[in-house]
Structure formats: C-alpha cells, structure tokens
Nucleic acid binder design. Structure first.
Length: 556
DNA sequence: TTTAGGG
DNA sequence: CCCTAAA
C-alpha cells in the first residue's frame, strides 16, 4: 500500500501542497476514514518531492481541523497520490534480518536486570572506545538503580516515572523488534516526553531521527549506534550520508551510498575513530549563520551593540511583521516563526513559507526540516483545539502526539533546527542603562546534552567552536559559548553531590535532571581533559585512545 | 574570532 | 544566559 517508497510511517496526517495551503479536497476517496490508517502530513515540493511536515505545518492544519472537523476527513482522503498508510509489516520483516543484532539488546537487557550494585564498580570491562565507556557508564548507573526504579522504568513509560529509561539509548539500539511499550520508553528517553502514538514504524522513525539528528531514516531497519543509523542489508541503505544534499529522503527511492561498514563495523566498533569518521554528514554540513543584516534591523533601536544572535532575532521580527503572517494558531507570540524566515534566501517572499525547508549554507540547498516538532507553546494550543481524544482514541496518530503539559519540557530534538525559543522563554530584562535586553532561554534537551558530551569527548573540552561547527551545526541557536557554558554547568553538576532525587520537592524538577550516566561521563571527560590537555595537543584523540588507562577507576 | 571567566 | 577581557 505504499504508494511511495519509504514514506511509510514517518509522521502524521494529511497533505498539503507546496505552499501549505490546503489542497482542496475531493477527488479520489481512497479510503474510508474508519480504516486504521495513519495519514502522514507532508508537503509537496515544487518538484514533486514530499517533505515531511514540520510541526508548524501540522499546527496549521490542526487549526483548520478545529474549525471543521469534517473537513479533516476530506483533506485526509484527498491524499490520493501520496496517501500513505502504515502497517506494521516492515517491522516484522526486518526482525528476522536483525536477529543477529537483537542479541545486543538482549545482552544489555540482561545486564540491566542484574541486581548487582557491585557492578557499579565492576563496570570497566575492557579498555575500549568511549562509546563503550558510555555504555558501561550507563549500565553501571542502571544497575545501581534501585530495583523499584528499574521496574518502574520497565513497566511503563507513563508519566508516573520521573526518569525515562535511558538505558534504552545506550550503545547500539535496535528498534526493530521492540514492542510498542519499549518504543515508547525509548521515545521518552530520547525526547524526554511521552507519546501515545502507537504506530511502531512512526515511533521507530521518530526515535531514529531523534537519535541521529538526521531526517533521512530508512524505513526498514532501525539500528542505531553512536548516533548513526546502522544500515543493514543491501536495499536498506539509506542515503543518510547525504542528508544535506537532500536529494531527499522518504519519498524518493533511497539510493545507497557506500555503506561499507555496516555489520562488520558494528562488530568491531571498538574503535571510535572509525565510527566518528563516518558520521552523518548531514549533521556536519555547516549551516551558515545568516548574516541577516537588513535595513530593517538598522531601524531597531538599541543601546548596546547587539550580539549576532540578537541581530538575527531582530531582523526576524521585522520579517514577520512584513510577511503579515497569520499562520500558526498559536501566534500569540509574535515571533514563533523559525529563523529561516530571516535567512537570506531568495525564496523569501511575502507569501511563501520559507521555513518549511531551510536554505542551507553555501550551496543554497534545500534541506527539509523533518517533522521536527513544535515549540513548547503551540503544543498546548493544539491540544486545546483538537482535543486529545482525537489522538488517543484511534490507534492512529493524527498529527500530534500527546505530551505531558509542562514537565515534558521541550525535550525535542525537533526544536533543533532553526527555530528559536518560544515567546514564553523570552523575557525582557531592564538594563541599568535604561535599555532592555532580551534574555532568552532555551532548555537544553537531553539529546543536546548527549551531543555536547560526545562532542567534547571527541574534540576535547575547550574546542567549542569546533564542537559547535561539527556537532551542533544544526542547532543554530547554540553558540560555542553556549556549549562552553553548558559544559561548565555539566561539570559542576557532575562533581556535585548525588542528585538524591526522592527527597526533592516534586515541584523542583521542572526540567529533567541530567541522567547520572551522563554526568558520570562528563566527569570522566573532565578528568581526561585535565590530564591530557596540558601537553598533548592531540585533543582529538581524547576520549578514544586515551581511555585505555583507568581514568575511571579513580571515581568508582 | 574564539576562549575563559565573572556575573 | 549575558558580557567582556584576552589571546
């Protein structure tokens, strides 16, 4: 039933045309609404490609739905050509193919269940890559959890458990044979929020995207290791190496690239060098920060020389005003349009929504912003508008998944691409000098933190610009300074006394605490860096080869 | 420009 | 997070 190869199960419902105007319904009613089908929201590019919708788009649509529910059906039905439905077949199929890998999971699962506090100290097994260290760290932490916690994390991903089961994210992740529940758990660990989406494929894709920060996820196999999709088999290969080139994923036939390493790599992936060597390029495509210094912005009054960041924002606001957007339902905030609006793209015209694809750097390539999800605020609106039942009732996800209101933060990888903080995060603080400056705050997501840690491990603490450029290219709102600051905080946190969760006032953690394993890792890296940086200039190797000696032993 | 630190 | 001094 897949009209379009590889398009199944990506996201949610409905279709729009390139401009995101709603395609007028009718035509071939292909399905009864009653069918357990999940429709996916995509945008049809000018050239006919389908691009997964962003949350913004979804929200827009949702807005419509609110007004006229029946319309939704029509719209959904109108998806003739691109109608995509999901059945779970894919997962089943790959299960067998992956049997080999599933062992990994099993092993970990077993390890998790071992009730051995002593393991915490026994963790170091063999000198290995930092990846392994990470794994071990996680394992150790996992093992050190109280039985209760462990059971809790396993039993449900419900909002009741405070911490997601991060163990699901460690090491190599094979999503293929996971149950819905496990997928939910993994999802939660990945994004920091729960989801009620029951579609496996969607979940897997979403998780994969979250973990790899890559939009180009094959639809057939989901084994992720070290932030990259491990491709198996022959036709499974995705061209995720070429995300940036955006010949485009999902819809168009997936053409494979040198996938060489696949299995063999996995087996002897002790060498993190190798792995890191073939990281997803798409992450590393530098997204040139637009030097949007338009006339408009010059008119903005200011007392102090604005930082680049401010400049971008300001110009952005201007743009919004010009484009007279009446787009998102949650337009309460005057500036919730992603930054791409402000990009120096030629395709920025008053009526075109430039933020659905983003203009990436030099080549001006268009990179689809995959179903990156919302900013915190809008979500609420959606829920209010559409009603949660809509989502929960059927086994289909329609455009959104439910989340816990606040406490789920915006742990969204999705927020990553160019949007900026939602309005509620921007407060203006009066300056002594009479001016006002905007202070925006964007909570660090777990994914970001992990990324940061990984970046530090690879490039060394202190090389912030490097890390920014290489590992945070897609997070335009994180500057190298931000990375540095965050690292400083992580460091502080990692050396600080143990969290002691229970005692804490429940109100206290509005944001998810940083999982112990990560802190542990931070500490290791700190140590490594401390002893490695003085003389050795090879900070690139920090965290890899250097791990041989037991730096960890000192802490455990 | 990038880092390091103070606030 | 922001800001600034240094490099």
């Amino acid at each position: 039933m897949e009209t379009v190869a590889g398009a199944e199960g990506v996201d949610e419902a409905m279709f729009e045309d390139g401009r995101v105007e709603k395609t007028t319904p009718s035509n071939s009613p292909t399905k009864q609404i009653s069918d357990p089908v999940v429709y996916k929201l995509v945008r049809v590019e000018g050239d006919g490609r389908l691009v997964p919708a962003t949350d913004d788009e979804i929200m827009e649509v949702v807005d419509l739905l609110k007004d006229d529910n029946s319309e939704m059906h029509i719209v959904a039905e109108s998806g003739q050509a691109v109608g995509i439905s999901i059945d779970d077949s894919s997962s089943g199929k790959s299960l067998s193919e992956l049997s080999g890998f599933s062992k990994f999971e099993d092993v970990y699962a077993d390890a998790e269940n071992l009730e051995a506090p002593t393991q915490e100290t026994a963790a170091p097994v063999a000198p290995s890559s930092d990846i392994d260290q990470m794994k071990q760290s996680v394992d150790a932490a996992e093992c050190s959890k109280s039985p209760d916690q462990m059971r809790e994390s396993e039993l449900s991903c419900a909002a009741t458990s405070l911490l997601p089961d991060f163990s699901k994210l460690k090491g190599e992740i094979c999503l293929d044979h996971l149950s819905i529940r496990e997928l939910h758990e993994t999802f939660r660990a990945t994004f920091g929020r729960v989801t009620t989406v029951k579609d496996k494929t969607w979940l897997k894709r979403r998780i994969a995207m979250g973990l790899t920060n890559c939009c180009d996820i094959p639809s057939t196999s989901f084994v992720i290791k070290d932030n990259q999709i491990l491709k198996l088999g022959e036709e499974e290969n995705s061209n995720n190496v070429n995300c940036a080139v955006a010949t485009d994923q999902d819809v168009v036939a997936i053409d494979d690239q040198q996938t060489d390493s696949d299995i063999s790599q996995k087996k002897q992936s002790e060498d993190c060098q190798i792995i890191s060597g073939k990281r997803l390029n798409c992450e590393y495509i530098e997204d040139s920060l637009p030097e949007v210094l338009n006339q408009e912005q010059k008119t903005v009054k200011r007392l102090r020389k604005p930082t680049k960041r401010y400049i971008e924002e300001l110009s952005e606001v201007e743009h919004h005003e010009h484009t007279g957007r009446s787009i998102t339902p949650a337009k309460s905030c005057g500036r919730d349009c992603p930054k791409s609006c402000a990009r120096p793209a030629k395709n920025v015209s008053p009526d075109s929504r430039t933020y659905f694809t983003r203009l990436d750097s030099v080549a001006g390539l268009r990179v689809p912003c995959v179903s990156r999800v919302r900013r915190s605020r809008p979500r609420k609106d959606i829920m209010a508008l559409v009603g949660i039942e809509l989502v929960e009732k059927d086994n289909q996800c329609l455009a959104i998944d439910k989340v816990e209101p606040e406490q789920n933060l915006e742990a969204k990888h999705g927020d990553s691409l160019d949007d900026d903080a939602s309005e509620d995060n921007i407060v203006t603080v009066p300056t002594a000098k009479g001016g006002i400056r905007r202070k925006h705050h964007r909570a660090w997501t777990l994914a970001e933190v992990m990324r940061l840690v990984e970046g530090v491990s690879r490039y060394g603490a202190g090389r912030w610009s490097e890390i920014k450029r290489l590992a945070f290219a897609s997070y335009s709102y994180r500057t190298s300074v931000d990375l540095k600051d965050k690292w400083r905080n992580l460091l502080k946190a990692s050396f600080a006394p143990a969290p002691t969760d229970k005692v804490m006032n429940p109100r206290k953690h509005v944001s998810m605490p940083i999982p112990a394993p990560i802190l542990l890792r931070v500490r290791e890296l700190a140590e490594l860096h401390a002893q490695a940086s003085p003389n050795l200039s090879t900070s690139k190797l920090v965290g890899c080869g250097g791990s041989v000696n037991g730096t960890r032993s000192g802490y455990l």
